[in-house]
């Protein structure tokens, strides 16, 4: 059995009166890829935004329940500290447009006011770009702006930026939905490699992608966690008829 890294207990998320995530309970295991799938509006993105405390930044939004990163309740910790330990990559690649590739990767340290000497920064940038399978493509143009890279490269740059902070977990919100199939495959292969060091939670509405890359899969519908199990089980013999219907493409 894998080690538990994240435990979500009775989590509810609201936008004012709207109940977006309803009493979710789940455990995420270390060094695995967990996919959260479900139709649009099912609460999957809200769920992961609760995990690194982004949800509460929306006006009128709040959460109840508990989320433990190992033994610490995320919801009662400093969000800045949490976001260092839990990185996030969004649907649309969003490198800082005016920053160079190098500065994009090291941005987390600079924003957090962490001082380092040049050699240390160089090592962090090189390692992060290597882990993001981008180093060979950009090593000669580190001072160029990240915005000039292709969509797939920009997304890998965002992954490099997230992993440069050496987080325990990275959250990815539909990271390949704006990418072509080749770039998507590259990101999927990269995630498979990254999970050796980092636990990965990925939100996707793409059933095939969830099936291909994840060790565990959660299926959400109308804010509820309908089923959560090992992907081998979910995609061959789901326990809940609603999951079966969703996999058949009957709704969503």
């Amino acid at each position: 059995m894998e080690d538990q890294i994240l435990t979500i207990r009775n989590l509810n998320a609201y936008f004012g009166d709207f109940h977006a995530v309803k009493n979710v309970n789940m455990t995420v295991y270390k060094n695995t890829i967990t996919a959260i799938m479900g139709p649009s509006g099912c609460g999957k993105t809200t769920l992961i935004r609760c995990i690194n405390r982004l949800h509460e930044l929306t006006e009128g939004a709040y959460t109840t329940g508990e989320i433990y990163l190992k033994n610490n309740n995320i919801l009662s910790m400093n969000p800045i500290i949490i976001r260092r330990q839990i990185g996030m990559v969004f649907q649309k690649p969003n490198p800082f447009p005016t920053m160079s590739i190098y500065d994009n990767v090291i941005a987390g340290y600079k924003i957090n006011g962490i001082k380092m000497d040049k050699t240390e920064m160089d090592t962090i940038v090189e390692n992060a770009l290597k882990k993001a399978a981008l180093w060979d493509e950009v090593k000669d143009k580190l001072k160029q702006k990240g915005a000039f890279l292709s969509g797939g490269q920009q997304q890998r740059l965002c992954i490099a930026r997230a992993i440069a902070m050496k987080p325990e977990i990275i959250l990815l919100d539909e990271p390949t939905s704006a990418l072509d199939p080749k770039s998507t495959l590259k990101i999927e292969e990269l995630l498979e490699e990254l999970k050796k060091d980092i636990t990965i939670l990925i939100v996707t509405h793409n059933i095939a992608q969830a099936a291909r890359i994840s060790d565990y899969t959660a299926f959400m519908y109308l804010g509820e966690l309908i089923e959560y199990d090992k992907s081998d089980k979910m995609f061959t013999n789901p326990s809940n008829p609603k999951t079966n219907e969703y996999l058949k493409g009957c709704f969503g």
Partner: peptide, 8 residues
């Protein structure tokens, strides 16, 4: 069966 279900 798992390979067929997961990778089509």
């Amino acid at each position: 069966i798992t390979i067929i279900a997961r990778f089509s």
